[in-house]
Design a binder for these strands. Structure first.
Lengths: 122, 122
DNA sequence: TCACCATATACCTGTTGCGGAATATACTTT
DNA sequence: AAAGTATATTCCGCAACAGGTATATGGTGA
């Protein structure tokens, strides 16, 4: 049952935040670090966990790895992502993450470009 | 975040099947055993797991323990239960469980009454 | 009271997962 | 080639969990 794999991916706080952020668009590891305020190892390992289970895809762009949700997620995954979006409105941590993400673009623009979507906006 | 607790409860195969069955109505442990075809310890321990996390409630009726979903589940839980219902249509294991549940009532009626909803139907 | 039934808990074992420290890899720039 | 940057992996210890065996608990009926 694929459902179990989905829930395994979402049953950790860091991974839940990662997936939620990805629903807003692709992101590179350094921006996950900045928004989540978690060390690089932790972020990278959870991304690896998600990747091996097909919950995210990654592509390299220079030094950076850009992570995204699967381009064509299956029915079950889509349903759960929608459910997450629905519930996220009332989760302070997730809302705060989105705020931090929005405030990230200007900072990053000053600091020098990494390859991902946030930088592209600036 | 309560979301995590929900996903923790759903990330195990046996627990997922239990929750799915409960969406069809209250059930006692012996019927879980019959439908899931899993040993009593296993069923009982997963029910205990779910109970301590508020995913199910239990009441005693004679020798039997009747488990149900919470009478007034929170918004997040409701959303995820609905999502599960949606996905369950395409999960053979879950569909099979429902079939077994439906076929259970007659058997049980012959075997002698336990206190739960299945028996009541017979 | 005693036997009996349904269910729960304690104990043990193997596995998985999380987090951190250190190190390795991949790519870029000089 | 060498140094630097971003990311991944390895190794470790620890806690949680899943499954099983054996036993305990709570309730019923003789």
């Amino acid at each position: 049952m694929d459902l179990i794999r989905i829930h395994e991916c979402l049953c950790d706080r860091t991974r839940l935040r990662i997936i939620h952020l990805l629903a807003a668009g692709p992101l590179c590891v350094c921006h996950f670090q900045a928004v989540l305020r978690e060390p690089q190892v932790k972020v990278s390992k959870h991304l690896s966990y998600l990747r091996t289970r097909g919950m995210v895809v990654a592509k390299r762009r220079g030094n950076w790895m850009i992570y995204s949700l699967p381009p064509r997620p299956g029915r079950e995954l889509s349903a759960h992502l929608a459910c997450l979006q629905d519930c996220a409105r009332e989760e302070p941590v997730l809302r705060r993450d989105l705020l931090r993400l929005a405030r990230l673009a200007p900072e990053v623009a000053g600091a020098g470009a990494c390859g991902c979507a946030v930088t592209a906006k600036a």
